[in-house]
Amino acid sequence: MALIEMKRIYKVYNPGEESEVRALNGVSLSVEKGEFLAVLGTSGCGKSTMMNIMGCLDVPTAGEYLLGGTNVNELSDNQLARVRSRAIGFIFQGYNLIKDLTAIENVELPLIYRNIGRAKRHQLAKDALVAVGLEKRMHHRPSEMSGGQQQRVAIARAISTAPPIVMADEPTGNLDTHSSIEIMEMLSNLNKKGTTIILITHDIDTAEYAHRIIELRDGRIIRDHLQEQKAQKEAGQ
């Protein structure tokens, strides 16, 4: 059974109105556990909408979405929140850290929502920050860190609960080349340890890190190919 199974997914904003937008137009896709998938496309092609639905932040207008065999369409708001808390870690283009909280407090948040006790929570958050090389910045606020560091805090937050899936929406969009490489290598390493990665990007170079790239245009998948060479190269290493 595929980890993610999308069957003819439609997402229509403002249906029936003049401003109607068909963001997704019958997308079908399945993603296996442990894949590194990049969703590539230009602005407005529907890739963020796709991530929102895959990440249980939004529900499709029509179609069926199964996550780990569960039909997400039938879940209540609170059940969706539970799925997000247990199964998915998010990394956003704008980092989306809470500005009043320190790095470690930001990383602890998803653990709080999972009702993990203070001591264990602190340890897990610390481990996650160490994993992204920010052990010396734990008590800094986002405003006291560079973009790359903030994105690393966001990665630490996404992986602190050890979710099976990490979804990254343009994670390098606001970063310089050096930081971008660092972030993408972190995601690759995460994937090597077994985490399924869904990467949303408009940048072909960034997408190259993935094993499988799907290309979206006008809400439809126009290409879906495995990076055979890369996979072989990595297998050979």
């Binding site: 929140a81 808390s85 989306n96």
Partner: peptide
């Protein structure tokens, strides 16, 4: 609002 969005995206329920 954005902070609420962040909290919700990382697993906060309505009651939280």
């Amino acid at each position: 609002t954005r902070e609420i969005g962040i909290r919700k995206s990382i697993g906060a329920r309505r009651i939280d």
